[in-house]
Protein backbone atom coordinates (compact mmCIF):
# COMPACT_ATOMS: atom_id res chain seq x y z
CA UNK A 1 0.00 0.00 0.00
CA UNK A 2 2.72 2.47 0.98
CA UNK A 3 4.80 1.59 -2.10
CA UNK A 4 1.68 2.18 -4.21
CA UNK A 5 1.16 5.59 -2.60
CA UNK A 6 4.84 6.35 -3.04
CA UNK A 7 4.50 5.51 -6.74
CA UNK A 8 1.58 7.88 -7.22
CA UNK A 9 3.19 10.63 -5.14
CA UNK A 10 6.28 10.43 -7.38
CA UNK A 11 3.90 11.10 -10.28
CA UNK A 12 2.61 14.23 -8.51
CA UNK A 13 6.18 15.26 -7.76
CA UNK A 14 7.42 15.03 -11.37
CA UNK A 15 4.44 17.13 -12.45
CA UNK A 16 5.22 19.75 -9.81
CA UNK A 17 8.77 19.79 -11.16
CA UNK A 18 7.57 20.13 -14.73
CA UNK A 19 5.07 22.87 -13.81
CA UNK A 20 7.91 24.84 -12.25
CA UNK A 21 9.81 24.81 -15.56
CA UNK A 22 7.03 26.83 -17.17
CA UNK A 23 5.87 28.77 -14.16
CA UNK A 24 5.73 32.11 -16.03
CA UNK A 25 3.44 30.52 -18.56
CA UNK A 26 1.09 29.51 -15.74
CA UNK A 27 1.29 32.96 -14.19
CA UNK A 28 0.56 34.80 -17.43
CA UNK A 29 -1.89 32.30 -18.87
CA UNK A 30 -3.98 31.48 -15.82
CA UNK A 31 -3.12 33.28 -12.64
CA UNK A 32 -3.28 36.83 -14.02
CA UNK A 33 -6.73 36.07 -15.45
CA UNK A 34 -7.99 34.87 -12.09
CA UNK A 35 -6.41 37.87 -10.34
CA UNK A 36 -8.34 40.03 -12.80
CA UNK A 37 -11.61 38.33 -11.85
CA UNK A 38 -10.82 39.01 -8.20
CA UNK A 39 -10.13 42.64 -9.08
CA UNK A 40 -13.52 42.94 -10.83
CA UNK A 41 -15.38 41.34 -7.92
CA UNK A 42 -13.50 43.46 -5.39
CA UNK A 43 -14.76 46.56 -7.22
CA UNK A 44 -18.26 45.12 -7.46
CA UNK A 45 -18.45 44.28 -3.78
CA UNK A 46 -17.04 47.71 -2.84
CA UNK A 47 -19.95 49.36 -4.68
CA UNK A 48 -22.50 46.95 -3.20
CA UNK A 49 -21.21 47.42 0.35
CA UNK A 50 -21.15 51.22 -0.10
CA UNK A 51 -24.79 51.33 -1.16
CA UNK A 52 -26.31 48.46 0.84
CA UNK A 53 -24.03 47.97 3.78
CA UNK A 54 -23.69 44.33 4.86
CA UNK A 55 -24.92 41.68 2.36
CA UNK A 56 -24.66 38.66 4.64
CA UNK A 57 -24.67 39.06 8.42
CA UNK A 58 -21.11 38.78 9.75
CA UNK A 59 -19.39 39.05 6.33
CA UNK A 60 -17.34 42.22 5.88
CA UNK A 61 -16.23 43.55 2.47
CA UNK A 62 -12.72 42.12 2.94
CA UNK A 63 -14.16 38.71 3.92
CA UNK A 64 -16.36 38.67 0.81
CA UNK A 65 -13.35 39.25 -1.48
CA UNK A 66 -11.03 36.84 0.34
CA UNK A 67 -13.80 34.23 0.22
CA UNK A 68 -13.57 34.40 -3.58
CA UNK A 69 -9.74 34.13 -3.46
CA UNK A 70 -10.00 30.87 -1.49
CA UNK A 71 -12.78 29.48 -3.69
CA UNK A 72 -10.92 30.25 -6.92
CA UNK A 73 -7.65 28.82 -5.55
CA UNK A 74 -9.25 25.49 -4.63
CA UNK A 75 -11.59 25.01 -7.58
CA UNK A 76 -9.63 26.29 -10.56
CA UNK A 77 -6.32 24.75 -9.43
CA UNK A 78 -7.07 21.26 -10.73
CA UNK A 79 -7.22 22.52 -14.30
CA UNK A 80 -9.10 20.89 -17.16
CA UNK A 81 -9.09 17.36 -15.85
CA UNK A 82 -12.06 16.10 -17.88
CA UNK A 83 -10.70 17.62 -21.08
CA UNK A 84 -7.31 16.01 -20.54
CA UNK A 85 -8.85 12.54 -20.13
CA UNK A 86 -10.95 13.17 -23.27
CA UNK A 87 -7.81 14.20 -25.17
CA UNK A 88 -5.98 11.03 -24.10
CA UNK A 89 -8.83 8.97 -25.48
CA UNK A 90 -9.19 10.94 -28.71
CA UNK A 91 -5.49 10.96 -29.51
CA UNK A 92 -4.94 7.33 -28.54
CA UNK A 93 -2.36 8.49 -25.99
CA UNK A 94 -4.22 6.36 -23.46
CA UNK A 95 -2.43 3.31 -24.90
CA UNK A 96 0.74 4.55 -23.18
CA UNK A 97 -1.01 4.72 -19.82
CA UNK A 98 -3.00 1.51 -19.97
CA UNK A 99 0.14 -0.55 -20.51
CA UNK A 100 1.67 0.52 -17.19
CA UNK A 101 1.37 -1.05 -13.76
CA UNK A 102 -0.88 1.65 -12.34
CA UNK A 103 -4.49 2.65 -12.50
CA UNK A 104 -5.04 5.18 -15.30
CA UNK A 105 -7.57 7.38 -13.51
CA UNK A 106 -5.63 7.41 -10.25
CA UNK A 107 -2.53 8.30 -12.26
CA UNK A 108 -4.34 11.23 -13.87
CA UNK A 109 -5.64 12.38 -10.50
CA UNK A 110 -2.14 12.53 -9.06
CA UNK A 111 -0.88 14.35 -12.17
CA UNK A 112 -3.58 16.99 -11.68
CA UNK A 113 -2.99 17.06 -7.95
CA UNK A 114 0.71 17.85 -8.50
CA UNK A 115 0.01 20.59 -11.01
CA UNK A 116 -2.90 21.73 -8.81
CA UNK A 117 -0.66 22.39 -5.82
CA UNK A 118 1.42 24.82 -7.90
CA UNK A 119 -1.70 26.53 -9.28
CA UNK A 120 -3.25 26.71 -5.80
CA UNK A 121 -0.16 28.40 -4.35
CA UNK A 122 0.15 30.85 -7.24
CA UNK A 123 -3.53 31.82 -7.19
CA UNK A 124 -3.38 32.30 -3.44
CA UNK A 125 -0.31 34.55 -3.74
CA UNK A 126 -1.39 36.66 -6.74
CA UNK A 127 -5.13 36.68 -6.00
CA UNK A 128 -4.36 37.40 -2.35
CA UNK A 129 -2.13 40.29 -3.37
CA UNK A 130 -4.93 41.85 -5.44
CA UNK A 131 -7.40 41.34 -2.59
CA UNK A 132 -4.98 42.81 -0.03
CA UNK A 133 -4.30 45.89 -2.15
CA UNK A 134 -8.00 46.46 -2.84
CA UNK A 135 -9.74 45.69 0.44
CA UNK A 136 -7.01 44.85 2.96
CA UNK A 137 -6.39 41.60 4.80
CA UNK A 138 -8.54 39.30 6.91
CA UNK A 139 -7.73 37.79 10.24
CA UNK A 140 -6.69 34.13 10.12
CA UNK A 141 -5.33 32.55 13.28
CA UNK A 142 -1.99 30.79 12.94
CA UNK A 143 -3.24 27.65 14.71
CA UNK A 144 -5.99 27.20 12.12
CA UNK A 145 -3.61 27.17 9.11
CA UNK A 146 -2.60 23.46 9.16
CA UNK A 147 -6.27 22.49 9.58
CA UNK A 148 -7.30 24.79 6.76
CA UNK A 149 -4.66 23.23 4.53
CA UNK A 150 -6.06 19.77 5.25
CA UNK A 151 -9.56 20.91 4.34
CA UNK A 152 -8.27 22.70 1.22
CA UNK A 153 -6.43 19.58 0.04
CA UNK A 154 -9.49 17.41 0.68
CA UNK A 155 -11.60 19.95 -1.21
CA UNK A 156 -9.26 19.67 -4.20
CA UNK A 157 -9.39 15.90 -3.92
CA UNK A 158 -13.21 15.88 -3.79
CA UNK A 159 -13.33 18.11 -6.85
CA UNK A 160 -10.89 15.73 -8.60
CA UNK A 161 -12.81 12.59 -7.69
CA UNK A 162 -16.07 14.02 -9.04
CA UNK A 163 -14.27 15.23 -12.17
CA UNK A 164 -12.82 11.71 -12.57
CA UNK A 165 -16.28 10.14 -12.49
CA UNK A 166 -17.43 12.63 -15.14
CA UNK A 167 -14.32 12.08 -17.26
CA UNK A 168 -15.12 8.36 -17.53
CA UNK A 169 -18.13 9.28 -19.67
CA UNK A 170 -15.57 10.24 -22.31
CA UNK A 171 -14.92 6.51 -22.82
CA UNK A 172 -18.52 6.28 -23.94
CA UNK A 173 -19.28 9.47 -25.79
CA UNK A 174 -15.72 10.50 -26.81
CA UNK A 175 -16.16 13.94 -25.29
CA UNK A 176 -17.46 14.65 -21.82
CA UNK A 177 -16.75 18.38 -21.90
CA UNK A 178 -20.47 19.28 -21.99
CA UNK A 179 -21.02 17.30 -18.79
CA UNK A 180 -17.99 18.96 -17.30
CA UNK A 181 -19.40 22.36 -18.24
CA UNK A 182 -22.54 21.61 -16.29
CA UNK A 183 -20.50 20.32 -13.34
CA UNK A 184 -18.24 23.35 -13.22
CA UNK A 185 -21.24 25.72 -13.30
CA UNK A 186 -22.80 23.72 -10.46
CA UNK A 187 -19.61 24.22 -8.47
CA UNK A 188 -19.60 27.94 -9.25
CA UNK A 189 -23.22 28.44 -8.22
CA UNK A 190 -24.35 25.67 -5.85
CA UNK A 191 -20.84 24.98 -4.63
CA UNK A 192 -20.59 28.62 -3.63
CA UNK A 193 -17.30 29.29 -5.38
CA UNK A 194 -18.10 32.90 -6.22
CA UNK A 195 -20.48 33.96 -3.46
CA UNK A 196 -21.34 32.35 -0.11
CA UNK A 197 -24.53 30.26 -0.19
CA UNK A 198 -26.17 32.64 2.30
CA UNK A 199 -27.07 35.00 -0.57
CA UNK A 200 -29.57 32.45 -1.91
CA UNK A 201 -33.14 31.89 -0.62
CA UNK A 202 -33.07 29.74 2.57
CA UNK A 203 -34.33 26.55 0.85
CA UNK A 204 -31.72 26.73 -1.95
CA UNK A 205 -29.06 27.51 0.62
CA UNK A 206 -30.03 24.47 2.68
CA UNK A 207 -30.03 22.07 -0.24
CA UNK A 208 -26.82 23.49 -1.73
CA UNK A 209 -24.94 23.34 1.55
CA UNK A 210 -25.83 19.65 1.80
CA UNK A 211 -24.67 18.77 -1.74
CA UNK A 212 -21.06 17.60 -2.35
CA UNK A 213 -20.16 20.63 -4.50
CA UNK A 214 -20.27 22.97 -1.49
CA UNK A 215 -17.69 20.83 0.31
CA UNK A 216 -15.12 21.69 -2.33
CA UNK A 217 -15.77 25.45 -2.22
CA UNK A 218 -18.26 27.02 0.19
CA UNK A 219 -17.49 25.14 3.42
CA UNK A 220 -13.66 25.28 3.16
CA UNK A 221 -13.63 28.97 2.15
CA UNK A 222 -16.02 29.92 4.92
CA UNK A 223 -14.01 27.90 7.43
CA UNK A 224 -10.91 29.90 6.51
CA UNK A 225 -12.74 33.11 7.42
CA UNK A 226 -14.74 31.92 10.42
CA UNK A 227 -12.72 29.12 12.02
CA UNK A 228 -13.81 26.83 14.82
CA UNK A 229 -12.65 23.30 15.59
CA UNK A 230 -16.24 22.17 15.68
CA UNK A 231 -16.89 23.30 12.10
CA UNK A 232 -13.49 21.96 11.03
CA UNK A 233 -14.37 18.44 12.19
CA UNK A 234 -17.78 18.65 10.62
CA UNK A 235 -16.42 19.78 7.24
CA UNK A 236 -13.54 17.28 7.44
CA UNK A 237 -15.81 14.30 8.15
CA UNK A 238 -18.35 15.17 5.48
CA UNK A 239 -15.55 15.69 2.95
CA UNK A 240 -14.17 12.24 3.77
CA UNK A 241 -17.66 10.78 3.42
CA UNK A 242 -18.28 12.39 0.00
CA UNK A 243 -14.79 11.46 -1.25
CA UNK A 244 -15.34 7.83 -0.19
CA UNK A 245 -18.77 7.84 -1.84
CA UNK A 246 -17.41 9.06 -5.17
CA UNK A 247 -14.38 6.75 -4.99
CA UNK A 248 -16.74 3.76 -4.69
CA UNK A 249 -18.71 4.99 -7.71
CA UNK A 250 -15.44 5.56 -9.54
CA UNK A 251 -14.18 2.03 -8.86
CA UNK A 252 -17.35 0.35 -10.11
CA UNK A 253 -17.76 2.67 -13.06
CA UNK A 254 -14.09 2.30 -14.06
CA UNK A 255 -14.22 -1.49 -13.97
CA UNK A 256 -17.28 -1.42 -16.19
CA UNK A 257 -16.13 1.26 -18.61
CA UNK A 258 -12.56 0.05 -19.18
CA UNK A 259 -13.93 -2.91 -21.11
CA UNK A 260 -15.48 -0.48 -23.56
CA UNK A 261 -12.18 1.10 -24.50
CA UNK A 262 -11.50 1.36 -28.15
CA UNK A 263 -8.11 2.89 -28.54
CA UNK A 264 -7.97 5.32 -31.42
CA UNK A 265 -5.28 5.58 -34.02
CA UNK A 266 -4.71 2.09 -35.25
Amino acid sequence: MSSQLNKYLSISFINIKESLTYIWDIIFGKVIFIALIIFVFANLWTVVFASKGEVIPGFTLAMMVWYLVFGEAIITSIGRFVKEVGDDIKSGEIANYLTKPYNYIVYKMFVSFGKGLINFTLILIFGGLVAYLMVGGVEISLISIPFLLIVALLAMLLNLVIASVISLFAFWIEDASSLNYIYSKFTFIFGGMIVPLEVYPPLVEKIASFLPFSYSAYHPSKLALIFSFESFFKVFLVQIAWISFFIIILIFFYKYIIKKVSVNGG
Binding site: N6, K7, S10, P101
Partner: peptide
Protein backbone atom coordinates in the same frame (compact mmCIF):
# COMPACT_ATOMS: atom_id res chain seq x y z
CA UNK B 1 3.78 3.75 -29.70
CA UNK B 2 4.91 5.90 -32.63
CA UNK B 3 4.36 9.64 -32.18
CA UNK B 4 3.22 9.12 -28.61
CA UNK B 5 6.32 9.95 -26.59
CA UNK B 6 6.53 9.01 -22.94
CA UNK B 7 9.37 11.27 -21.81
CA UNK B 8 8.43 14.42 -19.88
CA UNK B 9 8.95 17.09 -22.49
CA UNK B 10 10.21 19.92 -20.29
CA UNK B 11 12.38 17.79 -18.00
CA UNK B 12 15.67 15.98 -18.60
CA UNK B 13 15.32 12.25 -19.46
CA UNK B 14 16.86 11.21 -16.15
CA UNK B 15 13.72 12.47 -14.35
CA UNK B 16 11.51 10.26 -16.51
CA UNK B 17 13.87 7.32 -15.93
CA UNK B 18 13.73 7.80 -12.16
CA UNK B 19 9.94 7.96 -12.23
CA UNK B 20 9.62 4.82 -14.33
CA UNK B 21 11.89 2.99 -11.87
CA UNK B 22 9.32 3.80 -9.18
CA UNK B 23 6.34 2.97 -11.41
CA UNK B 24 7.79 -0.46 -12.18
CA UNK B 25 8.86 -1.02 -8.55
Amino acid sequence: FGQKPQLWFHLPPIDSFNLFAKIYD
